[in-house]
Amino acid sequence: MQHRGNVLESAGTDRRRADRRIFDGIPESAERCLVTFRGGAAHVVHGPGSHAFKAAEHFGSVLLAPSRGIAASLGSDKVHEYDGDVGMIMIVPADLGGKVTRSSTTESVIVALTPESLFELATREFGTGHAELQPPPFGTVDFQALQLAQLLKVELTDRETPNEFYVDSLVTMFGVHLLRNYAGARKLPQGPKGGLSNRSARRVREFLDVNFSSKIAVAELAALSSLSPSHFIQAFTKTFGEPPHKYLLRLRLDFAEKLLVESELSIAEVAHLSGFSDQSHLTVTMSKYRSRTPKQVKLQR
């Protein structure tokens, strides 16, 4: 798959995006695709036939035109037969396989969300990233999802070069819509045992999201939770599954990769803006944790 920001003009185009294959769950009939920061979107016209799917991303598919005689299974061998109306939504959580058989041509928009993106959106929406998508019954019509899908189709098909930031905004809105209507949040009112409270975790996370490129002392973060530095490190690790320095490093590397892909900044400039001391520091760190160099990321876009 091409790296995010590149439009896929034909099914034969290489579909690699760094170490992921965002559109593995989308068949080769995709008319236009665009990979974005949070995932991606595709306008797809399916001819009659069968399509099996399973991907590492979460998917939402919305029908743009009526389609009669659909048979589908999701997560089991049980097949459901139904007619698809305009606005019918199908949700496929990451790593859940299924199969669709169509007796007529269908037109749809498919939105992909990476697990990391859905986790982040769920954290902001529910105060916890532990949210699970719950696919609705086959044949469910969702007019709000249809509106977003129609906007995505116009952007993907009517413009020679779709605006990536606009598409990414629609993908984000689609993700929030899925969470609000088709997800269950496993809330942890007191936070994990020995971890930060949900309120403290939210404050720390929001602070890091804004200030990750600056020098941040553990004592500064601990003060947000009214804890001692040593207690804070233990509680943070319990809550986020990694110590503060690794969490911060991940934010910096994510931002650096985004700049390398979406801007014309030099590697040295990207290193500075992402919170690394210099280009060498960024290169060594990215090679260690992402198994690729900044130069390689630039070349893959």
Rank of each mutant, 00 (worst) to 15 (best):
E57D: 12
Y289W: 14
F240A: 05
G194S: 12
T140A: 09
A94Q: 11
R21T: 10
P93Q: 05
S274Y: 10
H43P: 02
P137N: 14
K215E: 01
A149G: 03
R199F: 13
I233R: 14
S213D: 08
T106F: 11
P93V: 09
D19I: 10
E125N: 09
R32A: 03
G98Q: 06
K238E: 15
T114D: 12
A56F: 12
S104I: 07
A65V: 07
L299Y: 10
A271Q: 05
S103M: 12
I26H: 06
R32S: 00
A145K: 01
T128I: 06
S266T: 15
V218R: 05
D83N: 10
E81Q: 11
R4L: 15
H281S: 09
N163H: 11
A65S: 11
T36E: 04
S291H: 10
E164A: 15
L8V: 02
D24K: 07
F59S: 01
S197A: 07
Y247P: 00
R17C: 15
L282Q: 00
Q144V: 13
F143A: 01
P93G: 06
K258I: 00
K246G: 01
V92K: 07
D85T: 06
T36S: 07
T172L: 04
H3M: 14
I216M: 01
T140Y: 07
S277M: 04
D19E: 13
L34P: 00
E264W: 04
K215H: 10
P66S: 03
K99Y: 03
V44Y: 15
P162C: 00
P136E: 11
S214V: 01
E125P: 06
T293F: 00
E9W: 13
S108E: 14
E257I: 01
G129D: 10
F59N: 01
E164I: 12
P294H: 08
A30H: 00
R203P: 03
S214Y: 13
S104A: 15
V297H: 05
Q190G: 08
H130Q: 14
G84Q: 04
S214R: 15
V204M: 02
L170S: 00
G69T: 02
D14I: 14
G191L: 03
L248K: 01
G69S: 04
L156M: 01
E132N: 08
K54V: 13
C33D: 05
T237M: 12
D14P: 13
E120Y: 06
Q150W: 03
S200R: 02
K246I: 04
M1I: 13
G184P: 04
R203M: 04
H177V: 07
G47D: 03
E107G: 06
S117T: 11
F37R: 10
I233A: 14
E31P: 00
T285S: 14
R180L: 05
T114Y: 11
V92A: 15
